[in-house]
Computed example of a mutant assay.
Amino acid sequence: MRFKLLLVLLLLNTVLFAQRDRYIVSGPMIGHTELRSAKIWVEFKPEVRNIMVLYREKGTRTEKEVAFVYPGQNPYFNIAFYELNDLKPGTTYTYDLVSEDRQIIATGDVTTQSLWQWRNPAPDFSFITGSCAYFNEPPYDRPGRPYGGDSSIFQTMAKEKSAFMLWLGDNWYTREVDYYSEWGLHKRASRDRSMPVLQDLWKAMPHYAIWDDHDYGFNDGDMSYPFKKQSRDVFKSFWLNPSYGNSGDGVYSKFTWNDVDVFLLDDRSYRSNDDMADSVNGKPNAEKQMFGKEQITWLKNALLQSKTNANIRFRIIATGSQVLNPASPYDCFRRFPAEYND
């Protein structure tokens, strides 16, 4: 009997994988997850339309339906966002992506955050983080021995029982063929997102991200990058952060997980060129900035607001550049002394 059950499960999984490959380029990926809502990201193949999401509390049969949602932000690839609402805090839900002919093409679980405030101690949790995900594409890699190589670490990460994954920039690497092409910027993100070694990780936990130079544009990119707006559109299309900067500019944001506030800082949109003088007449050069006045003002206010919240005990500030390293001369916040001292 046990052998027959395993055989049935194996056949079901084989059929599900085959269905997925017919419809999906990458994903599903879990995005921003709150106490009563969660977001799901998927890139479908170009011809695919009208994929629904059915979701239910795990172990129950009562389902709710979410329609196919086009974000309207990607002119080149068939990307959809789904928002699961009216959820219960601290509860695991099973979701199915369902085709027009009612076939399940992918499935997964998502767990909402707990409502512990004023009721219980804050739940313990762990998260994983990383950056610099370089996937080789030989025609466009640098000659000689390129970056990249073994990416099996992502399979290990997918097996961790972590609350979320925090991507710290260079989450894909644009190449010379991408820098000045809107399509190229979108294509790089789409290609790298679709790597088979990543697919289990996307659905294993929620994902939050900030960028650095290589997923923003060219190496050491700054505020002068002529495709900064297009690059921001790519970021918004491929990540489901709670928000993206302010007034149509930047990608900085903030999210809360239990008793931790996480501040995501954009180190590229407002950045002065690294070779601008650090000091003028022996004083820090006020014109040289990494984060920019608007973002720094937002951060100061957001930290003060966080301080007034009695339920927040820890605060994490995340960005793509080195901040605390006093020795490295590369991408280091110390080279922006006016902001650093502020």
Rank of each mutant, 00 (worst) to 15 (best):
I312Y: 01
P71F: 11
Y179I: 09
E63T: 06
D261Y: 14
S247R: 05
H207E: 07
F235N: 02
Y95I: 00
S306T: 15
D101T: 11
M205G: 09
E100L: 14
Q322M: 03
V177R: 11
K39F: 06
L97N: 03
W239N: 07
G217K: 00
K203L: 08
C132I: 05
M157W: 15
I317F: 10
R145D: 01
A338N: 01
N50T: 12
D261V: 14
S306H: 13
A133T: 11
M276Q: 13
P89Y: 07
F333M: 08
L11M: 03
L166C: 13
T14M: 05
T60H: 10
G292F: 01
L5D: 12
R313K: 15
H207V: 15
A158M: 12
S253W: 08
R22K: 09
V262T: 15
P121Q: 05
P329N: 01
D259A: 14
D220V: 01
N78K: 03
V98C: 10
V177H: 03
D213F: 02
S126F: 12
L54E: 03
R193E: 10
W257Y: 06
M165T: 11
D200V: 15
R142A: 04
V42L: 04
N74V: 13
L168H: 01
T107D: 06
E182K: 06
L54F: 05
N120M: 01
I51Y: 05
F164C: 05
M157L: 15
D150G: 06
L115D: 01
D222Y: 07
T91E: 00
L10E: 08
P329S: 08
R188K: 14
R119C: 13
V8S: 05
M1K: 12
V197K: 04
A18Y: 09
A286G: 09
N281S: 08
T112E: 10
A67P: 08
V42P: 13
K64W: 02
V66G: 03
I128G: 02
V110S: 04
D278C: 00
M205L: 05
R193I: 01
P28E: 04
F314I: 11
D342S: 06
K229D: 11
Q73Y: 13
L185T: 09
P138F: 08
F255M: 12
S224E: 03
N309C: 10
A106L: 13
H32E: 06
P139K: 12
